[in-house]
Protein backbone atom coordinates (compact mmCIF):
# COMPACT_ATOMS: atom_id res chain seq x y z
CA UNK A 1 0.00 0.00 0.00
CA UNK A 2 2.81 2.39 0.88
CA UNK A 3 4.41 1.71 -2.49
CA UNK A 4 1.32 2.97 -4.29
CA UNK A 5 0.81 5.96 -2.03
CA UNK A 6 4.29 7.30 -2.58
CA UNK A 7 4.03 8.59 -6.15
CA UNK A 8 0.90 10.72 -5.52
CA UNK A 9 2.40 12.03 -2.29
CA UNK A 10 5.57 13.18 -4.01
CA UNK A 11 3.52 14.31 -7.00
CA UNK A 12 2.79 17.92 -6.09
CA UNK A 13 6.49 18.98 -6.07
CA UNK A 14 7.26 18.34 -9.78
CA UNK A 15 3.67 19.20 -10.67
CA UNK A 16 4.10 22.68 -9.26
CA UNK A 17 7.10 23.15 -11.50
CA UNK A 18 5.40 22.06 -14.72
CA UNK A 19 2.03 23.74 -14.34
CA UNK A 20 -1.38 23.08 -12.81
CA UNK A 21 -2.54 20.50 -15.36
CA UNK A 22 -0.47 17.65 -13.95
CA UNK A 23 -1.45 18.63 -10.44
CA UNK A 24 -5.09 18.11 -11.33
CA UNK A 25 -4.38 14.77 -12.87
CA UNK A 26 -2.61 13.60 -9.75
CA UNK A 27 -5.41 14.94 -7.59
CA UNK A 28 -8.00 13.12 -9.70
CA UNK A 29 -6.06 9.86 -9.46
CA UNK A 30 -5.69 10.27 -5.74
CA UNK A 31 -9.39 11.00 -5.42
CA UNK A 32 -10.28 7.89 -7.37
CA UNK A 33 -8.03 5.85 -5.12
CA UNK A 34 -9.57 7.26 -1.98
CA UNK A 35 -13.05 6.71 -3.29
CA UNK A 36 -12.20 3.14 -4.22
CA UNK A 37 -10.86 2.42 -0.74
CA UNK A 38 -13.87 4.03 0.88
CA UNK A 39 -16.14 1.98 -1.34
CA UNK A 40 -14.31 -1.25 -0.57
CA UNK A 41 -14.46 -0.65 3.17
CA UNK A 42 -18.11 0.29 2.93
CA UNK A 43 -18.89 -2.87 1.02
CA UNK A 44 -17.02 -4.92 3.64
CA UNK A 45 -19.06 -3.28 6.40
CA UNK A 46 -22.33 -3.96 4.62
CA UNK A 47 -21.09 -7.51 4.26
CA UNK A 48 -20.24 -7.78 7.96
CA UNK A 49 -23.66 -6.48 8.97
CA UNK A 50 -25.24 -8.85 6.48
CA UNK A 51 -23.36 -11.77 8.00
CA UNK A 52 -24.45 -10.73 11.50
CA UNK A 53 -28.10 -10.54 10.51
CA UNK A 54 -27.85 -13.77 8.52
CA UNK A 55 -26.51 -15.53 11.62
CA UNK A 56 -29.43 -14.30 13.73
CA UNK A 57 -31.91 -15.46 11.11
CA UNK A 58 -30.12 -18.75 10.68
CA UNK A 59 -30.35 -19.43 14.42
CA UNK A 60 -33.98 -18.39 14.62
CA UNK A 61 -34.82 -20.23 11.40
CA UNK A 62 -33.25 -23.47 12.61
CA UNK A 63 -35.07 -23.13 15.92
CA UNK A 64 -38.45 -22.46 14.35
CA UNK A 65 -38.02 -25.19 11.76
CA UNK A 66 -37.05 -27.91 14.23
CA UNK A 67 -38.89 -26.51 17.23
CA UNK A 68 -42.35 -26.09 15.77
CA UNK A 69 -42.15 -29.53 14.20
CA UNK A 70 -41.74 -31.00 17.69
CA UNK A 71 -43.99 -28.60 19.55
CA UNK A 72 -47.43 -29.78 20.52
CA UNK A 73 -49.67 -29.63 23.54
CA UNK A 74 -48.07 -32.72 25.06
CA UNK A 75 -44.84 -30.79 25.53
CA UNK A 76 -46.62 -28.58 28.06
CA UNK A 77 -48.84 -31.16 29.72
CA UNK A 78 -46.72 -34.29 30.06
CA UNK A 79 -43.73 -35.12 32.15
CA UNK A 80 -40.35 -36.18 30.88
CA UNK A 81 -40.30 -39.89 30.07
CA UNK A 82 -37.67 -42.44 29.11
CA UNK A 83 -36.69 -42.33 25.44
CA UNK A 84 -39.09 -43.96 23.04
CA UNK A 85 -42.20 -43.47 25.18
CA UNK A 86 -43.18 -39.94 24.30
CA UNK A 87 -43.58 -37.51 27.12
CA UNK A 88 -43.22 -33.77 27.38
CA UNK A 89 -41.35 -31.10 29.21
CA UNK A 90 -43.80 -30.17 31.97
CA UNK A 91 -41.46 -30.71 34.93
CA UNK A 92 -38.50 -28.88 33.36
CA UNK A 93 -40.73 -25.95 32.45
CA UNK A 94 -42.19 -25.72 35.95
CA UNK A 95 -38.74 -26.20 37.50
CA UNK A 96 -37.30 -23.43 35.38
CA UNK A 97 -40.16 -21.10 36.28
CA UNK A 98 -39.76 -21.78 40.00
CA UNK A 99 -35.97 -21.39 40.06
CA UNK A 100 -35.93 -18.34 37.82
CA UNK A 101 -38.77 -16.74 39.77
CA UNK A 102 -37.33 -17.29 43.24
CA UNK A 103 -33.79 -16.54 42.08
CA UNK A 104 -34.94 -13.21 40.70
CA UNK A 105 -36.98 -12.52 43.82
CA UNK A 106 -33.89 -13.02 45.97
CA UNK A 107 -31.42 -11.24 43.75
CA UNK A 108 -33.50 -8.20 42.86
CA UNK A 109 -33.81 -6.56 46.32
CA UNK A 110 -30.09 -7.01 46.97
CA UNK A 111 -29.20 -5.60 43.58
CA UNK A 112 -31.65 -2.75 44.06
CA UNK A 113 -30.09 -1.79 47.40
CA UNK A 114 -26.57 -1.99 46.02
CA UNK A 115 -27.51 0.14 43.01
CA UNK A 116 -29.16 2.64 45.34
CA UNK A 117 -26.07 2.72 47.52
CA UNK A 118 -23.88 3.46 44.51
CA UNK A 119 -26.13 6.14 43.06
CA UNK A 120 -27.59 7.85 46.12
CA UNK A 121 -25.31 7.28 49.07
CA UNK A 122 -21.78 6.97 47.89
CA UNK A 123 -20.83 7.97 44.41
CA UNK A 124 -17.05 7.95 44.59
CA UNK A 125 -15.91 6.68 47.98
CA UNK A 126 -13.30 3.90 47.96
CA UNK A 127 -15.93 1.41 49.15
CA UNK A 128 -18.35 2.43 46.39
CA UNK A 129 -15.66 2.16 43.74
CA UNK A 130 -14.72 -1.27 45.01
CA UNK A 131 -18.36 -2.40 45.01
CA UNK A 132 -18.88 -1.06 41.49
CA UNK A 133 -15.76 -2.81 40.26
CA UNK A 134 -16.68 -6.12 41.87
CA UNK A 135 -20.23 -5.92 40.55
CA UNK A 136 -18.92 -5.32 37.02
CA UNK A 137 -16.63 -8.32 37.34
CA UNK A 138 -19.52 -10.48 38.55
CA UNK A 139 -21.60 -9.26 35.61
CA UNK A 140 -19.20 -10.83 33.11
CA UNK A 141 -17.69 -13.61 35.20
CA UNK A 142 -18.11 -17.10 33.72
CA UNK A 143 -21.41 -18.42 35.06
CA UNK A 144 -20.02 -21.93 35.39
CA UNK A 145 -17.79 -20.64 38.20
CA UNK A 146 -20.81 -19.34 40.08
CA UNK A 147 -22.22 -22.85 39.78
CA UNK A 148 -19.02 -24.32 41.21
CA UNK A 149 -19.07 -21.79 44.03
CA UNK A 150 -22.64 -22.58 45.02
CA UNK A 151 -21.80 -26.27 44.79
CA UNK A 152 -19.05 -25.73 47.35
CA UNK A 153 -21.18 -23.58 49.62
CA UNK A 154 -24.68 -25.05 49.42
CA UNK A 155 -24.47 -28.52 47.87
CA UNK A 156 -21.52 -30.11 49.69
CA UNK A 157 -22.39 -28.96 53.24
CA UNK A 158 -26.10 -29.75 52.91
CA UNK A 159 -25.57 -33.18 51.51
CA UNK A 160 -26.95 -33.01 48.00
CA UNK A 161 -28.13 -31.17 44.94
CA UNK A 162 -31.21 -29.07 45.54
CA UNK A 163 -33.53 -26.55 43.97
CA UNK A 164 -32.39 -24.07 46.59
CA UNK A 165 -28.81 -24.32 45.37
CA UNK A 166 -29.92 -23.69 41.78
CA UNK A 167 -32.01 -20.76 42.94
CA UNK A 168 -29.05 -19.29 44.82
CA UNK A 169 -26.77 -19.61 41.80
CA UNK A 170 -29.31 -17.77 39.64
CA UNK A 171 -29.74 -15.09 42.32
CA UNK A 172 -25.98 -14.42 42.26
CA UNK A 173 -26.22 -13.86 38.51
CA UNK A 174 -29.25 -11.55 38.89
CA UNK A 175 -27.59 -9.21 41.41
CA UNK A 176 -24.99 -7.46 39.19
CA UNK A 177 -27.47 -6.97 36.34
CA UNK A 178 -29.94 -5.21 38.63
CA UNK A 179 -27.11 -3.21 40.24
CA UNK A 180 -25.97 -1.87 36.88
CA UNK A 181 -29.38 -0.80 35.60
CA UNK A 182 -30.53 0.58 38.96
CA UNK A 183 -27.45 2.75 39.31
CA UNK A 184 -27.61 3.95 35.72
CA UNK A 185 -31.30 4.78 35.95
CA UNK A 186 -31.03 6.59 39.29
CA UNK A 187 -28.16 8.65 37.94
CA UNK A 188 -30.33 9.88 35.10
CA UNK A 189 -32.69 11.59 37.55
CA UNK A 190 -32.12 15.33 37.91
CA UNK A 191 -30.79 16.50 41.27
CA UNK A 192 -33.52 19.17 41.40
CA UNK A 193 -35.98 16.33 41.99
CA UNK A 194 -34.03 15.20 45.04
CA UNK A 195 -33.64 18.76 46.29
CA UNK A 196 -37.38 19.35 45.98
CA UNK A 197 -38.16 16.29 48.09
CA UNK A 198 -35.55 17.11 50.72
CA UNK A 199 -36.79 20.72 50.71
CA UNK A 200 -40.25 19.47 51.70
CA UNK A 201 -38.66 18.02 54.82
CA UNK A 202 -38.78 14.37 53.85
CA UNK A 203 -36.06 12.08 55.18
CA UNK A 204 -33.64 10.71 52.64
CA UNK A 205 -34.91 7.16 52.73
CA UNK A 206 -38.37 8.42 51.77
CA UNK A 207 -36.86 10.48 49.00
CA UNK A 208 -35.20 7.35 47.63
CA UNK A 209 -38.04 4.87 48.04
CA UNK A 210 -41.05 7.04 47.28
CA UNK A 211 -39.65 9.43 44.68
CA UNK A 212 -36.41 8.23 43.11
CA UNK A 213 -37.35 4.56 42.80
CA UNK A 214 -40.73 5.52 41.47
CA UNK A 215 -39.29 7.97 38.95
CA UNK A 216 -36.81 5.37 37.78
CA UNK A 217 -39.30 2.49 37.99
CA UNK A 218 -39.51 1.67 34.30
CA UNK A 219 -35.72 1.56 34.02
CA UNK A 220 -35.40 -0.64 37.09
CA UNK A 221 -38.10 -2.99 35.81
CA UNK A 222 -36.21 -3.17 32.52
CA UNK A 223 -33.15 -4.32 34.42
CA UNK A 224 -35.14 -6.97 36.23
CA UNK A 225 -36.67 -8.23 32.98
CA UNK A 226 -33.22 -8.44 31.40
CA UNK A 227 -32.00 -10.32 34.44
CA UNK A 228 -34.88 -12.80 34.17
CA UNK A 229 -34.11 -13.25 30.48
CA UNK A 230 -30.48 -13.90 31.25
CA UNK A 231 -30.97 -16.46 34.02
CA UNK A 232 -33.83 -18.26 32.29
CA UNK A 233 -31.36 -19.55 29.72
CA UNK A 234 -28.49 -20.27 32.08
CA UNK A 235 -27.39 -23.87 31.98
CA UNK A 236 -23.88 -24.13 33.36
CA UNK A 237 -24.57 -22.96 36.93
CA UNK A 238 -27.52 -25.36 37.26
CA UNK A 239 -25.51 -28.43 36.27
CA UNK A 240 -23.77 -28.49 39.64
CA UNK A 241 -26.54 -27.12 41.82
CA UNK A 242 -30.08 -28.25 41.02
CA UNK A 243 -28.73 -31.02 38.74
CA UNK A 244 -32.03 -31.93 37.09
CA UNK A 245 -34.73 -34.38 38.02
CA UNK A 246 -36.61 -36.71 35.74
CA UNK A 247 -39.46 -37.10 38.22
CA UNK A 248 -42.13 -34.70 39.27
CA UNK A 249 -40.86 -32.66 42.20
CA UNK A 250 -41.82 -29.25 43.47
CA UNK A 251 -39.60 -29.46 46.50
CA UNK A 252 -36.74 -26.99 46.55
CA UNK A 253 -34.88 -29.29 48.92
CA UNK A 254 -34.59 -31.99 46.27
CA UNK A 255 -32.84 -31.93 42.89
CA UNK A 256 -34.98 -29.90 40.53
CA UNK A 257 -35.49 -30.14 36.81
CA UNK A 258 -34.89 -27.16 34.57
CA UNK A 259 -35.40 -26.50 30.88
CA UNK A 260 -31.80 -25.64 29.89
CA UNK A 261 -30.27 -28.64 31.68
CA UNK A 262 -32.90 -30.92 30.15
CA UNK A 263 -32.16 -29.50 26.71
CA UNK A 264 -28.46 -30.14 27.29
CA UNK A 265 -29.08 -33.73 28.29
CA UNK A 266 -31.60 -34.42 25.52
CA UNK A 267 -29.71 -32.73 22.68
CA UNK A 268 -26.61 -34.78 23.42
CA UNK A 269 -28.55 -38.05 23.55
CA UNK A 270 -28.76 -40.49 20.63
CA UNK A 271 -32.59 -40.72 20.75
CA UNK A 272 -34.55 -38.95 18.04
CA UNK A 273 -37.60 -38.19 20.19
CA UNK A 274 -35.41 -36.66 22.92
CA UNK A 275 -33.61 -34.51 20.35
CA UNK A 276 -36.98 -33.36 19.02
CA UNK A 277 -38.05 -32.45 22.56
CA UNK A 278 -34.78 -30.59 23.02
CA UNK A 279 -35.60 -28.47 19.97
CA UNK A 280 -39.07 -27.78 21.32
CA UNK A 281 -37.57 -26.73 24.65
CA UNK A 282 -34.97 -24.58 22.91
CA UNK A 283 -37.71 -22.84 20.96
CA UNK A 284 -39.73 -22.17 24.14
CA UNK A 285 -36.70 -20.73 25.94
CA UNK A 286 -35.55 -18.59 23.05
CA UNK A 287 -39.02 -17.17 22.43
CA UNK A 288 -39.33 -16.40 26.14
CA UNK A 289 -35.91 -14.78 26.40
CA UNK A 290 -36.22 -12.72 23.24
CA UNK A 291 -39.79 -11.75 24.19
CA UNK A 292 -38.58 -10.50 27.57
CA UNK A 293 -35.80 -8.56 25.89
CA UNK A 294 -38.16 -6.90 23.46
CA UNK A 295 -40.60 -6.12 26.27
CA UNK A 296 -37.80 -4.58 28.33
CA UNK A 297 -36.64 -2.48 25.40
CA UNK A 298 -40.08 -1.17 24.53
CA UNK A 299 -40.73 -0.40 28.19
CA UNK A 300 -37.60 1.72 28.31
CA UNK A 301 -38.36 3.44 25.03
CA UNK A 302 -41.91 4.35 25.96
CA UNK A 303 -40.52 6.43 28.76
Amino acid sequence: MSATTLPPASGPAPAAASGPAKDLRVAAALGRRRRAIALAVKAACYGATGIGLALLFSILGTLFWNGFAALDLKVFTEMTRPPGSGGGLLNPIIGSLIQTGIGTAIGTPIGLLVGTYLAEYSKASPLANAVRFVSDILLSAPSILIGLFVYQVLVVPFGGFSGWAGTAALAVIVIPIVVRTTEDMLRLLPDTLREAVIGLGAPKWKMVTLVCWRAAASGIVTGVLLAVARVAGETAPLLFTSLGNLNWSLSLAAPMSSLPVTIFAYAGSPYQDWIALAWAGALIITLGVLGLNIAARSLLRRK
Binding site: T49, G52, L53, L55, L56, S58, I59, T62, L63, N66, A229, R230, A232, G233, E234, T235, A236, P260, I263, F264, A267, A278, W279, A282, I285, T286, V289, L290, N293, I294, R297
Partner: peptide, 23 residues
Protein backbone atom coordinates in the same frame (compact mmCIF):
# COMPACT_ATOMS: atom_id res chain seq x y z
CA UNK B 1 -30.42 -3.51 12.95
CA UNK B 2 -29.05 -2.40 16.32
CA UNK B 3 -31.84 -4.28 18.09
CA UNK B 4 -31.19 -7.37 15.99
CA UNK B 5 -27.53 -7.32 17.02
CA UNK B 6 -28.52 -6.94 20.65
CA UNK B 7 -31.00 -9.81 20.38
CA UNK B 8 -28.17 -11.96 19.04
CA UNK B 9 -26.42 -11.21 22.33
CA UNK B 10 -29.48 -12.28 24.31
CA UNK B 11 -29.84 -15.75 22.80
CA UNK B 12 -28.89 -18.26 25.54
CA UNK B 13 -25.58 -19.98 25.02
CA UNK B 14 -27.10 -23.45 25.00
CA UNK B 15 -29.02 -22.45 21.87
CA UNK B 16 -25.73 -21.53 20.18
CA UNK B 17 -24.46 -24.92 21.26
CA UNK B 18 -27.38 -26.81 19.70
CA UNK B 19 -27.29 -24.71 16.57
CA UNK B 20 -23.57 -25.29 16.25
CA UNK B 21 -23.88 -29.00 16.96
CA UNK B 22 -26.69 -29.73 14.53
CA UNK B 23 -25.97 -27.18 11.80
Amino acid sequence: VGTAVELLAAVPSIIYGMWGFFL
